[in-house]
Design a protein around this nucleic acid. Structure first.
Length: 470
RNA sequence: GGCGGCAUAGCCAAGUGGUAAGGCAGAGGACUGCAAAUCCUUUAUCCCCGGUUCGAAUCCGGGUGCCGCCUCCA
C-alpha cells in the first residue's frame, strides 16, 4: 500500500516516489503579504499542511518550503495607501499570518523565504535565462521569451497558439509575443528597487518561486502545490523559467486544490465576497474549520457557509465527546484483562481503511468516514461493557491520536488543555454534594460558573463528565 | 473559441462494474432533579435519455444544469 497523488502535469493519479528515498522536497505557494489572508486562502494552507503531516506520519522527512511574496504591485499600492513602507507592510502582515496560521493549527514550514531576501538568486536566474537565449531585455524590463521553450503550456495543456487565441490581456507592443512575461521590472519612481545588470528594478512575480524553490530544495523537487488558479500562468511560468535555465525537470508532482466558494462563487478579494481567516476562526472554531476543509476532496470546490461550518462544528463535538467519554471511562470503570479481540481487529481494519483512503490521492473525506466509524465503535463499546479492556481503550486512543496528529481536528496534540483539571474536579465534587443535598441552586450555580469558563458538565449514570467547549 | 471540473438523501459528502461510507439536521428510544447535553437506532437506488453488460451511481454516446482557468487571484 502506498501513496498515490493526482499529478496535474499528467492528469493522472501516480504512485508517489520521492527522488531521494525517505525524503520529500515540497514547495507550497504562499501568500502575498499585503493583507490578512481570507478563509479561501486558508484552504491550501490547511490541506497541504495535512498532506505534509501525512507524509511525515509515514516516516518521510519533509522539507517544506512556503514563500512570502513581499514585493509586487499589490504590496506597493497597499503600502502607499497606508502611508508605510513596503517592508513595514510585509513585516506586519507576516506577523498576522503567523498568528492566524498558528491558531488554525498549521504547522510551521521548514523555511519561509521572502522574495526581497533573494534578489541575488533571482538576478542570477534571470541572467542565466538571458545567456541561454530564453529572455530579452527592453528598456530595463526583462521578459521571458515563451517561443524559446517549446514545452510552454504543458501544465495547462494548451499550446502557445491556443493560449494566444484566448488572451484577453492588452498587449505590450514591445514584447515579442503577448505571452512573454516579465522576469524583471524596471524601476518606477516611489517604488522599492534593487540594483541589477539592467538598472534599478524589481523582480516579476513568477521568478521568485523558481529561484527560491531551487535554492532551498534543489533543481528538481518532489511536490509543488498551490491553488488551482495558479496553474496558469504562475506555475506554467515557473516551469518555463526553471527548466529553461537548468534543462532539468523542475517538479515531479504538481498538485492544486480546488476553490473555496461562498454563495457558489469563488471567494476572492477582487470580488469583495471574502471573510478573513481571522474573522472565521474567531466565529467558528479552528478545529471545525479544519474538519470542514477536510470534509471534501482537496481538488473539489467546497462551499463555505454558516450551515456547512455549523455542521463541521457539530461533527468535531462528536469526536471530542467520544474522547472525553473514553477519558472518563478510564478513571471510573474497572479495567479488566478481558479479551475483546473483536474490537481490536475492527479498529485495525478501520485504521487500514483510513490509510487506504489517505493513500488514494489524499482522500480525506473518505478517511473521515473511518474516523467516525471508530467513534461509533467506541461509543458502543463503552455502552455495552461495564468492564473494559485496557488494550481496547488504548487502541482507540491511539487511533485518535494518530489521525489527529495528521488532521489536527481534535486538538489532542497541538492544543494543550490549559485548564486545571483538579480544580474542576473539586468543583464537580462540591456540586454533586449540593445535588445530593437537593441544593440545586448551588449546583446550578457551579455549573453556570464552569460554563462561563468554557467547561461543559454532563451528569450521567456513572458520574459527572466534563469537557471543553470548542 | 480553447482547456478543465462538477451533478449521490432536507444539507455536507465518500464511493469508478456486483444491489449506496461517514457527518449534520429530522424521527424513535435510553439516561436524567426539570432542562440541557450525551449515547443508541433509523432515513437515498445515485440530473435526464439511450447503449454496453448476467449485472452500472460507477463504462460508452447524447442532452440539461452549474462552476472554474485562458487577466492579479489560494
Amino acid at each position: 500500500m502506498s501513496l498515490k497523488l493526482y499529478n496535474d502535469l499528467t492528469r493522472k493519479k501516480e504512485p508517489f516516489v520521492p527522488i531521494v528515498p525517505g525524503k520529500v522536497s515540497f514547495y507550497s505557494c504562499g501568500p502575498t503579504v499585503y493583507d490578512y489572508f481570507h478563509i479561501g486562502n486558508s484552504r491550501p494552507f490547511i490541506v497541504f499542511d495535512v498532506l505534509r503531516r501525512y507524509l511525515e506520519s509515514k516516516g518521510l522527512e519533509v522539507n517544506f518550503v512556503q514563500n512570502f511574496t513581499d514585493i509586487d504591485d499589490k504590496m506597493i499600492n497597499r503600502a502607499n495607501d497606508l502611508g508605510i513602507t513596503v517592508n513595514e507592510l510585509a513585516e506586519k502582515t507576516i506577523q498576522d499570518y503567523f498568528e492566524d496560521a498558528d491558531a488554525l493549527g498549521i504547522r510551521r514550514a521548514t523555511h519561509y523565504p521572502r522574495a526581497t531576501e533573494h534578489i541575488e538568486n533571482i538576478i542570477f536566474l534571470v541572467m542565466t535565462l538571458i545567456e541561454k537565449g530564453h529572455a530579452y531585455e527592453i528598456e530595463g524590463d526583462v521578459y521571458f521569451q515563451v517561443s524559446t521553450f517549446p514545452e510552454y503550456g504543458k501544465l495547462s495543456k494548451q499550446t502557445i497558439e491556443e493560449l494566444q487565441s484566448g488572451a484577453r490581456i492588452n498587449v505590450d507592443e514591445r514584447k515579442k509575443n503577448p505571452l512573454d512575461f516579465a522576469l524583471w521590472k524596471t524601476h518606477k519612481p516611489g517604488e522599492p528597487s534593487w540594483e541589477s545588470p539592467w538598472g534599478k528594478g524589481r523582480p516579476g512575480w513568477h521568478i521568485e518561486c523558481s529561484a527560491m524553490s531551487m535554492k532551498y530544495l534543489g533543481e528538481t523537487i518532489d511536490i509543488h502545490s498551490g491553488g488551482c488558479d495558479l496553474t496558469f500562468p504562475h506555475h506554467e511560468n515557473e516551469i518555463a523559467q526553471a527548466e529553461a535555465a537548468t534543462g532539468k525537470e523542475f517538479v515531479r508532482y504538481w498538485i492544486h486544490n480546488g476553490y473555496l466558494l461562498i454563495d457558489k462563487e469563488k471567494m476572492s478579494k477582487s470580488l469583495g465576497n471574502f471573510l478573513t481567516a481571522r474573522a472565521a476562526r474567531l466565529k467558528f472554531s479552528p478545529l471545525a474549520i479544519r474538519l470542514f476543509m477536510l470534509s471534501a476532496h482537496y481538488r473539489s470546490p467546497i462551499n463555505f457557509s454558516e450551515e456547512t461550518l455549523e455542521q463541521a462544528k457539530a461533527a468535531v463535538e462528536r469526536l471530542l465527546n467520544c474522547w472525553s467519554d473514553l477519558q472518563h471511562a478510564r478513571t471510573h470503570r474497572d479495567l479488566g484483562a478481558s479479551e475483546h479481540s473483536e474490537q481490536l481487529q475492527a479498529i485495525e481494519r478501520l485504521f487500514d481503511s483510513y490509510i487506504e483512503d489517505m493513500d488514494d490521492d489524499f482522500n480525506t473525506a473518505g478517511a473521515l468516514g473511518s474516523v467516525f466509524e471508530v467513534v461509533r465503535l467506541a461509543n458502543n463499546y463503552l455502552k455495552d461493557n461495564l468492564v473494559l479492556s485496557l488494550d481496547v481503550l488504548e487502541k482507540i486512543e491511539s487511533f485518535f491520536k494518530k489521525i489527529d496528529d495528521v488532521m489536527g481536528i481534535m486538538g489532542l496534540t497541538d492544543n494543550e488543555q490549559h485548564e486545571d483539571s483538579s480544580e474542576i474536579e473539586r468543583l464537580i465534587s462540591e456540586r454533586n454534594q449540593a445535588r445530593k443535598d437537593r441544593n440545586y441552586a448551588r449546583a446550578d450555580q457551579i455549573r453556570d460558573e464552569l460554563a462561563d469558563r468554557g467547561i461543559i458538565l454532563e451528569d450521567t449514570s456513572e458520574g459527572t463528565k466534563w469537557k471543553i467547549q470548542i
